[in-house]
């Protein structure tokens, strides 16, 4: 089974990297970019067959390590 965990910064947390990318896109002439927030994507292969079990395991993984809940949110998707 394949799964994807997406980690994003919480609203209101300053993201200087996102800001720099936003500026770079503008200077490249890419139009219509209002704002950019940078995050992380983890593609994970799982041995388990039961999606509910896999989801619970990935939530645990996200809260233990993948995301820092002080400043980040996470989303788990079973693909």
């Amino acid at each position: 089974m394949k799964a994807r965990v997406t980690v994003t910064l919480k609203t209101g947390v300053l993201d200087p990297q996102g800001k720099a990318i936003e500026g770079a896109l503008r200077s490249l002439g890419v139009e219509g970019v209002a704002s950019v927030r940078q995050g992380k994507v983890f593609d994970i292969e799982i041995d388990a067959a039961d999606p509910a079990h896999a989801e619970a395991m990935l939530k645990r993984a996200s809260e233990k390590l993948l995301a820092n809940l002080v400043v980040e949110n996470y989303r788990v998707e079973i693909l």
Binding site: L14, P16, Q17, A20, N68, V70, V71
Partner: peptide, 16 residues
């Protein structure tokens, strides 16, 4: 901070 012994987090410097 990451181990939970202190609160908060150290983020990228303002000027990158």
């Amino acid at each position: 901070c990451e181990s939970g012994l202190l609160p908060g987090v150290l983020m990228r410097n303002r000027d990158l």
